[in-house]
Design a protein around this nucleic acid. Structure first.
Lengths: 339, 339
DNA sequence: TTGTATGCGTTATCAA
DNA sequence: TTGATAACGCATACAA
């Protein structure tokens, strides 16, 4: 248990009020006294007591949670994590404002950010666009308010931290699995979500690089885009497989797995090797049935939990995250370890 | 923010003191009043405020941490987790007593438990023996003090919770990986730690069962015991491989991996498929070099963190764990996702 | 059997 | 520019 502000006041020979003014930079303090108290605080390693602070924090802390999560089952676990971390701060009056949207519309996201002007902090799954970075930087600049980016990051933004996936490693891990399972004898169809989404591209890049390095005889026959949609996925997978019947493996770097797998099972003469990303209910069923051999998870619960905890640690306890980037584990899941 | 004891007192028309007596079962309260307050508390979902309680908890809370972790690098991460969870309760005066021992000596463990008579709670990696269960039950009975078993469990013990590995699933997962990598064409040498350790046996059992079910053409050629020792491991692996040169795969269900793998690489004409458990520095190197293809992790950091958090939640916040058994993820790690 | 006073560490308000 | 005081929720010692 560290030193208290009361002890600090005694040591400095002043009242607690003065110490408080110094510690919280309220001004109106004799510079000499200010200096003395600051030195003492540093010397004795003063850290505000969480309990004491929690007890007097009355005005509710409003934080915005902006996610394009509507219709995306991946975010169910993320939300559970966010809520759990929030619950661990229930001795503080924290009020999260949930703003869930659908799709990747820039204008819509800008408006959502604009609607958060009176929040104390933000958690967001940002589009990687300069306009978004600009708005977020405005938010941050106006009152030094912290922003945590969740699951996706945005360039040139002064956010407190990024909490999410290491997309490159996710793709590398998938390639390693694909190579191990096929013994390297694979002609692979890569099915990606969107070439406009940075994370998907990084996965595909990591995948191809490791494949080349570790399993040089394996080849990527084609890369198709399904826009995270099952119907589109079914169509483009069927088309690609018909165009090249020698394809014997598929890597899905994003969503739209169910549709694509169904199409593959219909078209292929013998069941292909399939590696996917994430662990949605659809993919659980496909692992269970044996249609998908392995999936590379990104611990969505941890992502939600850590994002909220990072923001609240900063806001309520002046505690900075150790790193600017907090990465989830890329766990490999199969039929027997998906629980 | 839930209801406070003060509000409860107002609602019941009594003083805060009386409410406190009821809530903390101190006795000396009119039965009718007691009933009324209990009903009200339940009805309004009263939960003691963490901050308020932290502020008044003055006598240090002593908790014993008993691990046979000496010389076992697996526990390094466990300890990090224990310490982190402890740190999150730094507004309470918690004093952990670390008792680390070497090996699996019954007498030694019984003495360590005996030395914890004045602790408020216990975290322990128990030997699964009736004598241990008995001593722990005595400890628990004497003051209703909580015990959390960590990484290994003990039968017939009234512990608060078990935090650790799902050993059966660990073995099943390893079998699935082994089968996927070898395409089922495997003659496997199983190298276990000790036939006296329940967890090792469960892993081997899960391994063989899934192998049989999913890859019926694969066979377990032999099972050898290395007592978690690299030297012993090297000897018995070399011997088994010389006895049966058709063996082309190894599963290590415990430690002693480095010695065993070195022997295997020396004896085998072509590099065998190797699946292991855990992610020690040795195994990291072997994954990196490609000698080991995959390892089944058990999230030791999480285990330590969760064990400590479970105990302190109970002790300081009267908060029970959701389940009696808290299981770590059996994550599969390869060269590209071990970070 | 019940009520009251005090103090924990912090912030906010008011007085000097 | 500084100091004193009240309040938050809880536990405890003491008074009635």
């Amino acid at each position: 248990m560290p030193i208290t502000s009361k002890q600090l006041a005694q040591l400095a020979g002043v009242s607690r009020g003065t110490v408080d003014r110094v510690l919280n930079r309220r001004g109106g303090v004799n510079p000499a006294v200010q200096q003395r108290i600051e030195d003492l605080a540093r010397q004795y390693g003063y850290r505000p007591n969480r309990a004491g602070r929690a007890l007097v924090t009355r005005s509710p802390l409003r934080i915005g949670v902006l996610m394009n999560s509507v219709g995306n089952p991946f975010f169910d676990e993320v939300k559970r994590g966010l809520e759990t971390a929030c619950g661990e701060f229930s001795d503080f009056p924290v009020v999260p404002y949930w703003r869930e949207t659908k799709g990747y519309d820039l204008q819509c996201q800008l408006e959502e950010i604009a609607g958060c002007q009176d929040m104390a902090g933000l958690i967001i799954t940002p589009l990687n666009r300069p306009e978004v970075a600009g708005r977020l930087n405005d938010f941050i600049g106006n009152g030094n308010r912290p922003v945590v980016t969740l699951n996706t990051d945005v360039d040139d933004c002064a956010r407190l931290a990024y909490v999410g996936c290491r997309y490159l490693a996710s793709g590398q891990t998938a390639a390693q699995m694909m190579g191990l399972i096929t013994g390297g004898n694979a002609r692979i169809l890569v099915v990606t979500g969107s070439l406009k989404v940075q994370g998907h591209n990084q996965r595909v890049y990591g995948f191809s690089r490791v494949l080349q390095k570790e399993f040089p005889q394996a080849v990527i026959a084609d890369v198709v885009e399904n826009n995270d949609d099952d119907q589109v996925s079914a169509n483009c997978v069927a088309q690609a497989l018909q165009a090249d019947p020698s394809i014997n493996a598929l890597y899905f770097s994003a969503a739209g797995v169910r549709g694509g797998v169904e199409a593959a099972l219909t078209v292929c003469s013998s069941p292909p090797t399939i590696v996917t990303c994430d662990l949605t209910p659809d993919i659980r069923r496909l692992l269970e049935s044996g249609a998908v051999q392995a999936t590379v998870d990104q611990d969505p619960y941890w992502q939600g939990y850590t994002a909220m905890k990072t923001l609240l640690d900063k806001l309520l306890l002046q505690q900075d995250p150790g790193t600017e980037r907090l990465y989830a584990q890329n766990g490999i899941r199969t039929k027997y370890n998906m629980l």
